[in-house]
Design a protein around this nucleic acid. Structure first.
Lengths: 235, 235
DNA sequence: ACGCTAATGTGGTCAGACCATAGGAGGTGG
DNA sequence: CCACCTCCTATGGTCTGACCACATTAGCGT
């Protein structure tokens, strides 16, 4: 039954080491050659496993010598989630429509949690909104700040899983959002509207009006996708 | 500027081929050796990229000859999402608590969507609930069916992104759920309660009572985690 | 004590070899 | 002509060994 492929063995070993606490964030993995001989597999198999961990955001690899070299546990979930969602959308495993709807669900949850949390800190989000007032922003720059804003809100809600998913969903549809922006006739008017909506949402959140904030964010997102020609016939 | 590492080049090539429609689900990738020579990289670099795609659920590889051999685009997001979330939880990138809260958000959204959809089909979910009535189920079997039930609901809602995320979140905390079950003193009573709650939820959904269904699913999940000793102090 | 240089440790990559497997081609016997 | 068996071929899976690039460190010479 030794069906397990060599690289899976490496992956499993590292996973159990993580679960059992033998490996913790910040730790360095053994050198590839050592891992290979320890586990009785070839170095190429070790590398395949490490590559997976790297793309998933669990490790960072560095050449050379010293404390920053080798494979280090970092556990930054953003990159991995983005890569996964982007590739799945590209491969048509995730319909664009479902991505947008999922974003709507998560965004609503974030806004709801924030508005209901008396200890909320929307300072970062306010800063981004202020930065979006600059008059000479290109659509690309504006949309980049928009992504930052929504991400800042997700982070302020304190749920790293949701924040990672939001970042990933946004990345996955980034090129489509970009393309949609170019199809908007009066960009300045659209941007002005988005600015107003952002402030309204933040005001509702800071006022603790969860219901109003939820409605606003819903309309904000569906409105944009409708205008950019990305939405289907859903609510 | 040829900073890109060889395997990233392979990954990018495949991604752009997907985005441009040169590769579609069901298609076969060129053989590893051919890809390597085409892109001017070594075969091991190609393999590292393919390994990433495989773990993310984009391709399936098969040895031998014929139409089922080679790397085939499949785009089944479940496996990739599960692997990512499981590893991130193991590496402490995702706190268990946030995973549970995210599950709550998604599950509520699923139930809400189902209850509000006049064309809903909860037949699969009903079947699983019926199967859970078997008297001689071990806790492990019972929990496995429970996972199936929640997944069936997610699928019935028609959003594959949410379904994949739910499956992944469940996988990520599977071992903890399992451990929690063993710590429950009166398992039979707990299981009976879960059965009742499942039926109540399905009844509310089929009755189109979204609000009641939402409340029930919330209490269902938080109740279990509280009993299994997995929950923190949140609502 | 300082500064340059060589050695060392590490990931990144490639080339080549071999194995296991699955299908197909082609021969062989009925 | 067909059925079966055998060998060939294409493919992924793995290992080994060899380089390279890079960053640190040890050691040497002044």
């Amino acid at each position: 039954m030794p069906e397990a492929r060599a690289w899976q063995l490496v992956l499993e070993r590292i996973e159990t080491d993580l679960l059992d606490g033998r490996l913790r964030p910040g730790d360095r993995l053994p050198p590839e050659r050592e891992l290979a001989s320890t586990l009785g597999v070839g170095r190429s198999s070790v590398r395949e496993a490490l590559r997976v961990l790297e793309v998933m955001g669990l490790i960072r690899t560095g050449t050379g010598s010293g404390p920053t070299s080798g494979a280090i546990i970092i556990a930054t979930p953003r990159g991995g989630m983005s890569a996964l969602l982007r590739l799945q959308v590209a491969a048509q495993g995730f319909p664009l429509d479902d991505v947008v709807r999922t974003r709507l669900v998560l965004e609503s949850a974030v806004i709801d949690a924030l508005a209901s949390d008396p200890d909320r800190d929307t300072g970062d989000a306010r800063s981004v909104v202020d930065a979006m007032d600059a008059a000479d922003l290109t659509p690309a720059e504006f949309l980049s700040l928009d992504a930052q804003l929504h991400l800042a809100l997700a982070e302020a809600s304190g749920n790293v899983v949701i924040a990672a998913m939001m970042a990933g969903l946004r990345t996955a549809i980034e090129s489509y959002v970009q393309a949609g922006a170019e199809g908007i006739a009066d960009w300045d008017a659209a941007a002005a509207r988005l600015r107003r909506e952002h402030r309204s949402i933040l005001d509702a959140v800071d006022a603790g009006d969860a219901e109003r904030a939820r409605t606003l964010i819903h309309d904000h997102i569906t409105g944009y996708y409708a205008q950019a020609g990305l939405a289907r016939s859903h609510d």
